[in-house]
């Protein structure tokens, strides 16, 4: 069995995002990029499956510009066997064209288990996993918090609103990973040093013409730094209203 992990390099969660002068993209100059945290669950799960199922190898695939090689190096440091960069000239906000490039590469690798994060924290679209399912015509289970593989049979627990759904399918299949699935390992220093020297293979890809285009970016209305809603119990109804209507978190 071969396992493929699709991962994405994204700006660090703490990064200060600034809109570039073209008003359509962000200024990357002062941004530190990291492996999308949800993809780390995917890498960890792949490595665990390799250990438990005796899989042949784990390949990590990423789509992105040259800097995305760093994300692949992190994967190597964690223990992934092979990596490939599908090198794009431009950042696309269209998940479908990204999924098409990834699907072609996955097919080539012959991987039977494809793991990826449930979403990338940059655009938060949550589309690539389910789209791969259509493009490759294999089942996909999303937002998985527990995974059991037994031969070719796959059992997964998936987070749904107000509960958990237990699903079963067979390989080949796609799993998108949610936090709680595992604790991603910290890359060993030896791994990091090995990864530094690793030759990263790259293939240039041309993305489909996107049917989806960002026409402009804007900042949200600046939330004033800390709003004291009030004092004592009288302030509670207003707080609840703000949480529902302004922050929209409950």
């Amino acid at each position: 069995m071969k396992i493929a992990v699709c991962l994405k390099q994204v700006p660090d969660t703490e990064a200060n995002i600034k809109i570039a002068s073209d008003q359509k993209s962000i200024d990357e100059s002062a941004i530190k990029f990291i492996v999308n945290p949800y993809d780390e669950y995917a890498i960890e799960e792949a490595l665990k499956l390799k250990e438990s199922q005796g899989a042949e190898s784990v390949i990590a695939i990423t789509l992105g510009p040259d800097r995305a090689k760093d994300a692949l190096r992190t994967a190597v440091a964690m223990g992934v066997d092979d990596v490939v960069l599908l090198k794009t000239s431009a950042n696309s906000s269209d998940a479908l064209s990204a999924a098409k490039s990834l699907a072609a590469k996955i097919k080539e690798t012959g991987a039977e288990m494809i793991l990826l994060g449930k979403e990338a924290i940059d655009d938060g679209s949550m589309q690539v996993g389910p789209m791969l399912s259509e493009l490759l015509n294999i089942p996909c289970i999303t937002v998985v918090t527990k995974l059991e593989v037994n031969g070719s049979s796959v059992k997964a627990e998936r987070e749904i609103e107000g509960g958990v759904e237990v699903l079963q399918t067979t390989m080949p299949c796609i799993i998108t990973c949610q936090k709680g699935l595992n604790e991603p390992r910290f890359p060993s220093i030896r791994g990091v040093m090995m990864a530094k020297k690793k030759q990263i293979s790259e293939e240039a890809v041309e993305l489909d013409d996107a049917k989806l285009a960002v026409s402009s970016l804007s900042y949200p209305q600046s939330r004033s730094e800390g709003k004291i809603v009030g004092e004592g119990t009288e302030a509670v109804p207003e707080l609840i209203r703000l949480l529902r209507e302004e922050a929209k978190v409950i």
Binding site: D12, E14, A15, N16, K32, I34, F186, I189, G191
Partner: peptide, 26 residues
């Protein structure tokens, strides 16, 4: 690769944001 787990966020923080609390370097 064995060390108290609590150090992991500190290491990540130093690596990513150059401070042990991983707060935004900006």
């Amino acid at each position: 690769n064995k060390f108290p787990q609590e150090l992991e966020p500190a290491f990540r923080g130093l690596e990513t944001n150059s401070n042990p609390w991983n707060l935004g370097m900006s």
